[in-house]
């Protein structure tokens, strides 16, 4: 026993180094195998349910296909058709207008509300106001759309309130008015997205070092100056997230439009999402619908990527 032990011992010196290296490699290998095994299911799902549909959409956009019969390769003809059709173009313009309502209003209002709530963040009132303002976010968009379309009818609650405060002159069927249907729908979106932005920004504010504010106050900074020089720059990333989420919501909007106006009256609230739906399921132009979808993805990326870059610069 001891004999064998002693014989092994001296030999173990150089061998152990190689062995250890080998064992290390094996451990590293098994580690990455485990990692791979953990990633594969998600990756497969991602490939099948995200990448494949994306690939298919791109592929369909080069065909003339009604979704049933044989298809014809048409190259870039569907994309050319997008530029030719003013209704398709108009729908894209509408979604840009929606950015003002879905993004600017919620983010700006969210910033000021969050800043206000931060002022009394420990009180009960903060909890209540946080909850109340976040509620629209947890209501399904479809329910919100139905609710608002009833509130906004000619005899609905909104007009009743306006009449009660002496503004009876401006009452109208808000979602049936050619000029005001789109802004009205934008306000429904703002109402929904405001809570999300407010909560994200509030969470961001709670991470800011209070010492910064103390130092500023000692230096005699006003509340406005504090907000402008400390709060706002520290929230760069959160604002980036808010802008990204809301801009995507504006450009890819569908649910609220589908429920409240279906693009009407007279196409005045038509958005690309609605148009894709009509093209694919009513006109059965899957090629053109796919081309519009691809174009929409490109527009979204063209707007989102610079936003991402601008709000992440500092970290690198």
């Amino acid at each position: 026993m001891t004999d064998s032990a002693t014989t092994i011992q001296p030999a173990s010196g150089p061998a152990s180094l190689a062995e250890r290296r080998h064992a290390n490699r094996a451990r590293r290998l098994s580690k990455s195998l485990i990692a791979l095994a953990l990633v594969v299911p998600a990756a497969v799902m991602y490939a099948v349910f995200v990448l494949r549909p994306l690939g298919l959409t791109i592929q369909y956009s080069f065909y003339d296909w009604n979704g049933i019969g044989a298809s014809t390769w048409v190259g870039l003809k569907n994309y050319a058709a997008l530029f030719d059709n003013p209704v398709l173009w108009g729908s894209l313009l509408h979604s840009f207008i929606l950015i003002v309502f879905f993004c600017l209003i919620p983010v700006i209002l969210g910033l000021f509300t969050a800043n206000t709530i931060r002022g009394f963040s420990t009180s009960r009132l903060a909890l209540v106001s946080r909850t109340v303002l976040f509620i629209p976010q947890i209501i399904p968009l479809v329910a919100a759309g139905i609710m608002w379309s009833w509130l906004l009818t000619s005899k609905g609650f909104v007009n009743q309130v306006l009449t009660a405060v002496g503004l009876g002159g401006i009452t109208r069927a808000w979602l049936g008015d050619f000029d005001l249907a789109l802004p009205t729908m934008g306000l429904i979106g703002a109402w929904v997205l405001f809570g999300l932005c407010m909560l994200l920004l509030l969470a961001g504010m709670s991470k800011i070092d209070p010492a910064l504010y103390e130092a500023a106050r000692i230096d005699g900074a006003t509340a406005w100056k504090e907000f402008w020089s400390i709060t706002l720059p520290s929230l760069k990333q959160e604002i980036g997230v808010c802008v990204t989420v809301t801009v995507v919501a504006a450009l890819a909007s569908f649910d609220i439009v589908y429920i409240s106006t279906r693009g009407g009256p007279g196409n005045s609230t038509m958005v690309p999402g609605m148009q894709i739906y009509y093209l694919a399921f009513f006109e059965r132009e899957l090629g053109l619908a796919s081309a519009l979808a691809v174009a929409l993805v490109i527009v979204v990326l063209a707007i989102i990527l610079p936003v991402q870059r601008a709000t992440k610069e500092d970290k690198d």
């Binding site: 490939a47 990448l51 494949r52 690939g55 298919l56 791109i58 592929q59 369909y60 065909y63 296909w65 979704g67 049933i68 019969g69 044989a70 298809s71 390769w73 899957l286």
Partner: peptide, 11 residues
């Protein structure tokens, strides 16, 4: 994935 889906024309 793109290649896979591009194998055949839709329909």
């Amino acid at each position: 994935v793109l290649l896979m889906s591009a194998c055949s024309a839709p329909g």
